[in-house]
Design a protein around this nucleic acid. Sequence first.
DNA 1: TGAAATGTTGGGGCG
DNA 2: ACGCCCCAACATTTC
Length: 473
Amino acid sequence: MPSIVLFTNNLRLADNPALAAAVAEGPVVPLAVLDEEAHGDWRPGSAARAWRAASLAALARGLEARGAWLVVRTGATSEHVLSVARETGAASVHMAAAVEPDRAAWLHRLAQTLAAEGLRVVQHSPNLLHEPGTLTTADGRPYLVFTAFSRAFERRVALEAQLPAPNRILVPPKRPASEPLPEPTADAPPLMLASFAPGEDGARARADAFFAEAIAEYDRRRDLPAVDGTSRLSPHLAFGEISARELYWRALRAAEADPAAACGALAFARQLVWREFAYHLLASHPRTPTEPLRPEFARFPWTYDAAALDAWRAGQTGFPLVDAGMRELAATGWMHNRVRMVVASFLTKDLLVPWQGGARWFWERLADADLANNTLGWQWVAGCGADAQPFFRVFNPAGQSRRFDAAAYVRRWVPELSRVPDRWIHAPWQAPEAELAAAGVRLGETYPHPIVDHAAARARALDAYRALRAGGR
DNA sequence: TGAAATGTTGGGGCG
DNA sequence: ACGCCCCAACATTTC
């Protein structure tokens, strides 16, 4: 009897437990539903929609190569699952479980609806090594400190057999009606598809290149924005185009195989454990996408300034590394991780804009938008989350730009500064006017003056933090 | 997975 | 040779 596989954020054939379970039962009906209601307050943004469209096209090709096809529908998932089940005689539905609170609630309702109609609903966990809730402290509470979490994580891990992509997928005799694949929308980041290859094959190609070329130096080069030293796998992971446990075990094996690569490989594995930590935290603290984990931060004296937030979004703050990052995001749907920290620190501390505003903008614009990671990252920077950096750690945008050698990165994304020499490109407001003029720059005309004085802004942020602490007593 | 202020030390110029 | 000062380099503390 056929089974339906619902493809959501598990857009792959290899190591996909939902697909493997369905294949084991017989004919398979692969189904993807574009359902606005499925995401609650966190609907995919422009980059994520464009990525999803490209990834679904890749998934459809992969299925066709194995004798199957993909049914695409728009609207309420429950109605489409039921109609596809009626059309094909499917009796069970395999799908990915969700950790995100809105998605989990929606999925719970969906499962109830389908079960009430007589369908067997099976939820799988395709994208995590450990189910949220399975790693707890001795007294059963969720970990709030990363190092403790990672120790527990490593104690628990066992190499699970990975599920190979099925060679051949049986389908029922009649193919249900399908809409055409979604088109990338006009608001897609213009350079996203020049920078990334959505889909399982693209994910694997990227992973292969990363493990062949960059893993050994990952620990040293991942912080350099001008260098292609990160994995750039985040959007692939967000859509489940490649399995996190495959990457994790690949990293551990790389560390064993080559002592010279061990530091880099373990640093990469550690990033995957951070990802896992984010999911566990979101499951145990479901309100954190909008509320600080540390409750006293609800009283933090943010000074909401719409103009400042607009300048930040537009990459027009007058701080070259901040602007470069924000423009990379707009152009590609992705931003280098070091620069994410810098722009987030700048928004929350230099501009005192609430971190939720930054988290929402990242959500709208990142192809890799992932509620668990986005929430953890922003709360970490703002100092109000789990294992967060102390609030008084304020990044100096010019200092970070110098320290991590970002001149070439700035020139790429802020072309109006491309002729400014290395000495001044991190802080052009300090340059002699003649040198700027020689580089074709006039501050306030071709590139903004800094919208804040960093030293004064830092002092203001520290004052605000002191006010918060004083108010708590 | 900070930065700035403050403190300490030691080399070298100099009277 | 000696003490004094300057200051770079490094360490510690503080936010």
